[in-house]
Design a protein around this nucleic acid. Structure first.
Length: 317
DNA sequence: CGCGTTTGACCCGCGC
DNA sequence: GCGCGGGTCAAACGCG
């Protein structure tokens, strides 16, 4: 029995159909325009999760209340368009991973044109308001020009059936914008990683055709470990999960058949499996931080580990 | 007071 | 050139 099928698409971009019965992850979809076949980086690495965390994330049992939506096939060039109606024949009732051809770009160079901000007062030079306005606009324009030249960051998206719009993934995000989506009553929210050195962005929007589906799109690669990852690396600090026998040791999900599934995975397949863990991890967030005692013993502020939204959710229970 | 959210304005790319 | 839609900025505001 095969645990997954490698179906070649028209132009050698494979699409993986993974039998969810053999994985601990249930019915969640992941749509990626990140070409894993030409890169050594997996989904979690893209997000900055490190290898030692992979196994721990795999050990998480998906909460029963989280229902991951059926997958949607997308073409390599196609953006994820949650507002559009998804044809029935493109819905697969198992975990699906689609890949595209966006390049894995190196980290973007610093923008030197905007580094002069705030240095104008040093020589006592005074500019009038109009000049300053012009300067600001020019700087903005230069900034835009530079950003235009830089290559597209790798992007991927996954769809999750959830009542909550914002799915926790272990990182802290700051909302920087919200836009109404054409032909959709649901707005699109824009988030940016709160880490100053990290320029990862995240778009969250609700599917127009199925409001219960949340589409999360990540752009870029985290340049730092997640707060959650840091917590995992601490001894005596582990998730509250009955599947975990003891701190520091991790189990594979009950449904995961090592002999039949794991050995069949290529390295890239494994990377994608790690990617799937991300969604599981996001769903696990609430349970993960439910025990404040373990955090207190480590001298860690709970807020440093989980975004406020999670904490609010937890406290309101 | 610091941090995150809200929201109107602005810029840019694209199609017509 | 113009209008539209997507993406971003940044001031104002709210909250703990």
């Amino acid at each position: 029995m095969e645990s997954y099928k490698d179906i070649k698409m028209e132009d050698h971009h494979p699409m993986y159909f993974i039998d969810n019965n053999n994985f601990g992850v249930t019915n969640h979809s992941l749509i990626s325009d990140y070409n894993i076949n030409t890169s050594s980086l997996g989904f979690m690495e893209l997000l900055g999760f490190h290898q030692d965390f992979y196994s721990s994330a795999s050990a998480f049992e998906l909460p029963k209340e989280e229902n991951y939506c059926p997958a949607v096939c997308v073409s390599e060039e196609e953006e994820v368009k949650p507002s559009s109606v998804v044809p029935e024949n493109q819905i697969i009732s198992s975990t699906t991973v689609a890949t595209g051809n966006v390049l894995n770009t190196p980290s973007t160079p610093n923008c030197s044109s905007i580094s002069s901000e705030g240095h104008g007062d040093a020589d006592g030079e005074v500019e009038n308001h109009e000049q300053q306005n012009t300067k600001t606009k020019q700087q903005l324009k230069a900034k835009k020009t530079v950003s235009q030249k830089k290559q597209k960051e790798p992007r991927f998206a996954f769809m999750t059936k959830s009542e909550v719009d914002f799915l926790e993934d272990g990182y802290r995000w700051r909302k920087y914008g919200q836009k109404a989506v054409k032909n959709s009553p649901f707005p699109r929210n824009y988030y940016r990683c709160t880490n100053a050195t990290c320029n990862v962005k995240k778009r969250v929007e609700r599917c127009f055709s199925d409001p219960s589906i949340v589409v999360t799109t990540y752009e870029g690669k985290h340049t730092h470990p997640s707060p959650m990852n840091m917590m995992m690396s601490r001894p005596n600090c582990y998730p509250i999960n009955p599947l975990l026998p003891s701190p520091g040791t991790f189990t594979l999900p009950m449904q995961f058949n090592i002999n039949q599934s794991f050995n069949n995975l290529t390295s890239s397949n494994l990377a994608m499996n790690n990617q799937l863990d991300h969604a599981a991890f996001a769903a696990q967030g609430r349970r993960f931080c439910s025990n404040t005692e373990m955090l207190g013993d480590q001298g860690i502020d709970l807020q440093d580990l989980m975004p406020s939204a999670v904490l609010k959710h937890e406290y309101n229970r």
